[in-house]
Design a protein around this nucleic acid. Structure first.
Lengths: 223, 223
DNA sequence: CAAAATACTTGCATGTAGTGCAAAGTTGCA
DNA sequence: TGCAACTTTGCACTACATGCAAGTATTTTG
């Protein structure tokens, strides 16, 4: 196995890697194009393969389904979120790191593909499967990061704490996205993105304050 | 459409309803039995239909896939959770209600099918799809309950708050279940169930206290 | 540089999933 | 009892998904 050194694995863009990346990209591009043109559920794997200039069989070497191909867009988005999260200092409180990582995503480049995908598949449960899986995959990554960080801290061995924290962070990120989409649709203007940023900040803040405000009392039995 | 009155729809167990319920049950029973016998992914819809004494085509009148049939077990579990939640007084803080509803589920009758399903499908992503969907469906129900409750309270119109709250509650319930299964496996003894109850209480308590304990500081920007 | 090793693509064959349709069988109701 | 409404079933058909083996491109080795 080549250098798995602590720094980012330097790009060895061999021909094969490049070809595979290009094919992969061609597939997702073709899939998105067909989604735009025909709407969700109205095209087949063969259509995608033809549009991407590959064989049907090769499609399945890259993705296990149409949904998976489209969900790779969501995966891409969430993967950069994880990257951002890993860049945060390890001694920063998790919720602050999560806020920072999420806010870094409220940028046109990153959200544009996701926004389009959402608007194209709105109220169509066809994407739901793979999309839920993408978020869950991200949750698992957040869990891994949180686990590492808290390994040394007092009480950091508490599996429940780490699981609940990772899941809640994801849920809040998802909630902010949902609210944003429902309010602004595919609007990517500066004002809209500012609103998204604020929603992301607020949703994580809710976690940090125990969901205090709206209800009357928030007393909760602690054992 | 018949009476959709506020009280629970009184049981009109006509012959047809009974037959359908029986068929449905026969299908899930057969599916679970095959899962026990052959393991996940090693049986077909036709196998289930044969074992349930119906035709392949009829299977699809009830469920859209093998996974869906098995996930109905999870749905059943989570639906009773929602029932419990709806029974709580409307002026009780959401987190307390959630705690109570979850604790009510830590009972052998309710968790037994779920525990078996989990152990049979552990580290097999075959169930993941429908299982994630089941939890998400439950999330939507929690959202609906929370929305109703908070409609009148100050700030209760805040969609973000309600979405984030519902999602986080689900995540914490899931986290508690996961930790419990990873610790005790299919153990349904009184002691094990007590531990589950405590995990559920603690996970919701984490939400109420803003995930305070383990990390050093938990300060989070609030705007 | 040529040849061998490796990795990727493709076509074919096969089994299964899922759905529309119409005929046959049940149940509900007057 | 007889008709209306609903449910089951078989059949046909499209599409999904994977294994396999042969072909093509890329990398490595001598």
């Amino acid at each position: 196995m080549p250098t798995t050194s602590p720094d980012a694995q330097q790009a060895p863009p061999s021909r094969r890697e490049l070809n595979k990346a290009a094919t992969r990209q061609a597939i997702t591009d073709a899939a998105l194009e067909l989604l735009r043109a025909k709407g969700p559920g109205n095209f087949t794997v063969e259509d995608i393969a033809d549009a991407a200039g590959i064989s049907r069989r090769t499609f399945f070497n890259y993705f296990s389904s149409t949904d998976a191909a489209l969900a790779s867009i969501v995966h891409g988005f969430l993967d950069t979120a994880i990257q951002q999260l890993r860049l945060r200092p390890a001694d920063e409180p998790m919720l602050e790191s999560a806020q920072a990582a999420l806010v870094a995503l409220a940028d046109p480049e990153a959200v544009a593909p996701l926004a389009e995908l959402f608007t194209l598949t709105q109220q169509s449960p066809l994407m739901a499967h793979s999309e839920l899986e993408a978020w869950d995959h991200c949750r698992a990554q957040v869990f891994a990061v949180a686990r590492e960080r808290l390994a040394g801290t007092p009480g950091g061995q508490d599996e429940l704490y780490v699981h609940a924290l990772a899941g809640s962070i994801i849920s809040c990120g998802k909630a902010a996205m949902e609210v944003w989409f429902s309010r602004r649709g595919p609007d990517l203007t500066a004002g809209s993105l500012t609103e998204l940023r604020q929603l992301l900040i607020d949703s994580i803040a809710l976690l940090g304050t125990g969901f205090a405000p709206p209800a009357s009392s928030s007393a909760v039995r602690t054992s």
